[in-house]
Structure formats: structure tokens, C-alpha cells
Simulated assay, not measured.
Amino acid sequence: MKSILVAAAVALVVSILFTPYLIRVFSRQGFGQEIREEVQGAHSAKRGTPTMGGVAILVAMWAGYLVTHLTVSDELPSASALLVLGLTTALGIVGFLDDFIKIRKQRNLGLNKTAKTVGQVVAAVLFAILAIQFPDQNGITPASENLSFIRDITVVSFGAVGFVLFAFLAISGWSNAVNFTDGMDGLAAGSAAMVLASYVLIAFWQFRYACSDIVGGPGPACYQVRDPLDLAIVAAAAMAACVGFLWWNAAPAKIFMGDTGSLAIGGLLAGLSMTTRTELLMIIIGGLFVVEALSVVLQIVVFRSTRRRLFRMAPFHHHFELAGWAETTVIIRFWILAGISCMFGIGLFYADWLALGGS
């Protein structure tokens, strides 16, 4: 528990203090956000606000994790945590390039779809291949080739090649879902902080009741997860980094996370879901991100089929904004929905524990 608290405290301080430094530097360099034409009226005042603030989240997350291992943790950095951090950073680099191109070309479109997809493929494939290596003394690898809900569903096994494909779909899906959600001040950062807080609880609970630590042999309620405590440290550092960034990103935002932050956070969520064996549970905990992504898919499908729009604008949060809701009203209500999704997911996680005889 001490390691988790130190990671969160360090990441929070670094994020709060480092973000205003980035605001000054990016403002001097002219690294300002371009605004979509469809929302120019409502968001025109935001044009030129510094972007690529996801750099602060990544730096704070790494700082929290590394300082914890250098000071209070007796363990070396684990394979699971380093893989998740590496995936997060790799997607952050893809997002940084996307943001940088937008700024240099003064448009709202950065990397083309092919280039962004290639970056996601490389990051996902490397993560997936390495995640089914490095077994611990109990033979548990960072990720499993089985699909998982709260635990592995052993009857649904992908195999090595299938898992690589599944990992790409999950990583691409989550990174794009968070990217879609990042359209209002603080919406993505606040929602991500709640999801990551949920994973601090989940990973710490898995650490407390890891099968390898059960006296007298493992029972049905224990967890076959490699490095759960270190994953809790990663989640705590990332959560605090998002909260610290939110201090400056809340409306009216002084800086945006950009694709640098949204793609990285999406990759982080995907990585945590696979390494904690909760891939399907993440769909519930991260329900807000799922709804935002679905709104985009439905908008495209309906428009191509009927030439009519299902929503005034997608992603979903812009539909309510164009319907007359104030931006802060949309943000707070969507945060409430994100919190409800997290609580429901945690409830299912604990119900599974009780159903299998945990006490």
C-alpha cells in the first residue's frame, strides 16, 4: 500500500508542477490546437490553446513509478508493468507525431490513417508478443492467450497468433475510444482518472489474493495474475498524473492532452485489462469511452446507409452541446456516467469474488 501511495503522490506533484511549464514552452513555440470546423462557433475561443499536454501525463506516470522503485519498493520493476508502460509510451509517441503534424500544417488532421494504424500495429504486436513471454516462477506470463472477463475464460483460447490479433484490436479500439472522448475540457482526463482508480483497487485486490500467496494452496477465488502489485503502482501513478493534469485541463482549459495523451491513455487501459485478465470487464468499467466510440461508428453506418445523421454530431458529447447544453454540463454529466460505470464494474468484480467463496 505504501508503494501505491508514493507512486500516486509523486505523479500528482510532478503533473501539477510540470504541466504549467509545458504550457509556457508550448505557448512560446506556437504549439496551439486547431479546432474542427463543425464546432468552430462553440469552440473558436479555444483555438491556439497549447496541446500535446499528454507529455506531462507520461512524464508524471514514469516519475511516480520509478521513484517508487528507487525509494520504497524492495522489488525490481516487473515485466508486466514495464510492458504496460512501454505500450503507453509507444502510443504516446504516435500521438505526439500526430499532434506535431497538426500544428506544423495548421490543420485539424495530423497523421493519415495509414501512418497512425502502422504505429498502433507496431506497438500492439510488440506488446502482445512480449506479453506472452517472461513466465514467473509459477509459470504465469504477463498476459494470457485466453479471453478474460474477471478471470480467464479457458474455453476461449486465441492461441499465440490469435492473441496478437486480439491485442491489436483491443489496443487500437481503446486508444481510439479515448481519443474520441477527448473533445471537451477535462472530459477524457477526468473519466480516465476514475477508470484508473478502479484498476488500482482491482490490481491491489488481486495482489492480496494471488493464488501463489494463499496458505494451504490456492482456492477458486484467488487470482492467477503476474505482478499485480506493480500493476497497481502503474495504475496509481497514471491516475494521479491524470488528476494533476486535470488541474490545468479543467474548463476553461489552459492546455489540451492532444493525441499524445489520449492514444497513450487508451493503450494504458488496454494493457491493464490484458495484464489483469479483465478484458471484458474493462468494457463495463470504461463504459463512457465505449459509448463515445460506438456513437462514431453508428453515425457513420447510419449516414452511409440512409444519408441522414443519427446524432447532430459525433462523438456523442458534441450531440448534446449542439442541442444547447453548456459544455460544463455535458462534462459533469458524462463524468457521472463514467463514475457509475466504474462502480458497476467494481461491483461485478467483487461479486465474482464472493460467488467463488471469497471472504
Score class of each variant (00 low, 15 high):
residue 210 A to Y: 03
residue 242 C to A: 12
residue 103 I to Q: 05
residue 333 R to H: 14
residue 205 W to S: 07
residue 326 A to K: 15
residue 200 V to T: 02
residue 329 T to A: 15
residue 314 A to H: 03
residue 239 M to E: 04
residue 140 I to D: 00
residue 302 V to T: 10
residue 296 V to P: 07
residue 162 G to F: 14
residue 252 P to E: 09
residue 175 S to E: 06
residue 72 V to L: 14
residue 247 W to K: 07
residue 290 V to A: 05
residue 34 E to R: 10
residue 336 I to G: 10
residue 51 T to V: 09
residue 237 A to I: 00
residue 4 I to F: 00
residue 338 A to H: 02
residue 213 D to G: 08
residue 114 T to L: 15
residue 280 L to R: 00
residue 344 F to K: 02
residue 292 E to K: 04
residue 240 A to Y: 04
residue 268 L to H: 04
residue 293 A to S: 15
residue 186 G to A: 12
residue 271 G to W: 04
residue 190 G to M: 02
residue 271 G to I: 03
residue 327 E to L: 04
residue 164 V to R: 01
residue 22 L to M: 15
residue 192 A to S: 15
residue 167 A to S: 15
residue 57 I to W: 00
residue 274 M to A: 13
residue 69 H to W: 05
residue 74 D to I: 08
residue 31 F to Y: 13
residue 128 A to Y: 04
residue 62 W to M: 07
residue 73 S to D: 12
residue 38 E to G: 03
residue 141 T to S: 12
residue 88 T to K: 01
residue 140 I to G: 03
residue 178 V to N: 00
residue 200 V to A: 06
residue 71 T to G: 06
residue 238 A to K: 03
residue 284 I to R: 00
residue 108 N to K: 14
residue 287 G to W: 01
residue 227 D to E: 13
residue 220 P to M: 06
residue 84 V to H: 03
residue 200 V to S: 03
residue 272 L to Q: 00
residue 16 I to A: 09
residue 343 M to H: 05
residue 239 M to H: 05
residue 6 V to T: 13
residue 202 I to E: 04
residue 340 I to L: 15
residue 273 S to P: 02
residue 191 S to I: 01
residue 115 A to L: 14
residue 180 F to Y: 13
residue 60 A to N: 05
residue 11 A to H: 02
residue 126 L to A: 14
residue 59 V to F: 14
residue 147 L to Y: 06
residue 125 V to S: 07
residue 341 S to M: 11
residue 102 K to I: 07
residue 287 G to S: 09
residue 189 A to S: 15
residue 30 G to R: 10
residue 167 A to V: 04
residue 103 I to F: 08
residue 237 A to R: 00
residue 190 G to K: 00
residue 319 H to W: 11
residue 76 L to C: 01
residue 62 W to L: 14
residue 294 L to F: 15
residue 85 L to T: 01
residue 329 T to G: 13
residue 178 V to S: 00
residue 59 V to K: 08
residue 252 P to Q: 10
residue 215 V to T: 14
residue 179 N to P: 11
residue 69 H to E: 03
residue 284 I to C: 03
residue 184 M to V: 14
residue 207 F to K: 03
residue 130 L to E: 11
residue 286 G to S: 11
residue 196 L to F: 03
residue 42 A to N: 02
residue 340 I to T: 11
residue 314 A to L: 13
residue 336 I to F: 14
residue 318 H to M: 12
residue 86 G to S: 05
residue 347 G to D: 04
residue 319 H to V: 11
residue 292 E to M: 07
residue 283 I to M: 10
residue 190 G to V: 05
residue 300 I to S: 13
residue 118 V to N: 06
residue 133 Q to A: 12
